[in-house]
């Protein structure tokens, strides 16, 4: 099963939760950090035996000797990555989404497949399990292509699970992190910002039709609007992690809180059971 740990608002505890879940998971599990812009899971899981490879996206490389300036490539490109200035074909590789349309449409074979670096994919082991993360190259604008590279390498066996630490928000990077999951865990905090972004995330992910549950982190701060909303919308609350300075300090030291804070152990065991039960209820999922 694939479990995605997501949230509308950033900083609500996705990584804290993902690291803790991986540390107590009772089946083989691959930890995947898909927040490639600001990956943090490795700071808590400290993967070993790491291997790093670079990932690329195909972008056009013009061969000026063959180009007749027919404009077909510039016309098909929807991303302003190709333009013709006077007698010169200009390619802006940073704008390219890698659709391959220009190469297909060019009647002169004047565009060759080149590449742009998206970033790195780092794999290793943590807590006796597989670990994989992406790290977007600084200056690279698009995270979904790097996320696709990581996801293509994931082939869950029936005896294994995958826990995805998703990027914040509800736009394309967040959706592409959760869309292949069997179950979504929405982490929030009971504050006006947390509540507002929780609703956005719920509206965004509910149409995917996947089992979804909420985790309220820092319970006790702010108000109880998230809990009220969950009750009314019949969203199960799978865990509440109380606000405590002790937890915040353990986190600030890079600790996995399910391991460092004794009182949270049972909270995370319950969360794990709730997540596993949610995917069992879906026939043939």
């Amino acid at each position: 099963m694939i479990y995605a740990i997501a949230s509308g608002k950033g900083g609500t505890g996705k990584t804290t939760l993902s690291a803790s879940l991986v540390s107590i998971w009772d089946r083989p599990v691959t930890a995947v950090d898909l927040d490639v812009e600001e990956p943090n899971l490795h700071l808590f899981l400290h993967p070993e035996e790491t291997q790093t490879r670079r990932a690329y996206i195909e972008v056009p490389e013009p061969d000026e000797s063959k180009c007749t300036l027919c404009r077909k490539c510039a016309d098909i490109c929807q991303f302003k990555a190709i333009t013709i200035m006077g007698e010169t074909l200009l390619v802006f590789p940073e704008m390219c989404h890698g659709c391959g349309g220009c190469l297909e449409v060019c009647p002169e074979n004047a565009l060759l497949p080149g590449k742009r670096e998206l970033g790195e994919i780092i794999s290793g082991t943590a807590y006796g399990n597989d670990f994989i993360m992406g790290r977007l190259r600084i200056g690279e604008a698009m995270s979904p292509p790097l996320m696709r590279h990581i996801k293509e390498g994931l082939t869950p066996k029936p005896s294994e699970d995958i826990i995805i630490d998703a990027p914040p928000g509800v736009s394309c990077p967040a959706i592409s992190a959760v869309m292949d999951a069997d179950c979504i865990v929405l982490v929030t905090e009971p504050t006006p910002f947390g509540f507002h972004d929780f609703k956005l995330a719920w509206e965004a992910f509910a149409p995917l039709g996947k089992p979804m549950g909420a985790v309220i982190n820092r319970a006790g701060i702010g108000d109880t609007k998230v809990q009220d909303f969950c009750r009314n919308a019949a969203i199960p609350i799978w865990a509440e992690i109380p606000y405590a300075r002790e937890i915040a300090e353990a986190y600030s030291e890079g600790a996995v809180i399910a391991q460092a804070v004794e009182s949270l152990r049972e909270t995370f065991e319950t969360l794990r059971r709730n997540m596993q039960a949610a995917t069992q209820e879906v026939p043939n999922a």
Binding site: D35, E37, E38, L136, P168
Partner: peptide
């Protein structure tokens, strides 16, 4: 601004 270092931040 937005979180991250991608498209909207750039």
């Amino acid at each position: 601004g937005a979180p991250g270092i991608g498209c909207p931040v750039i």
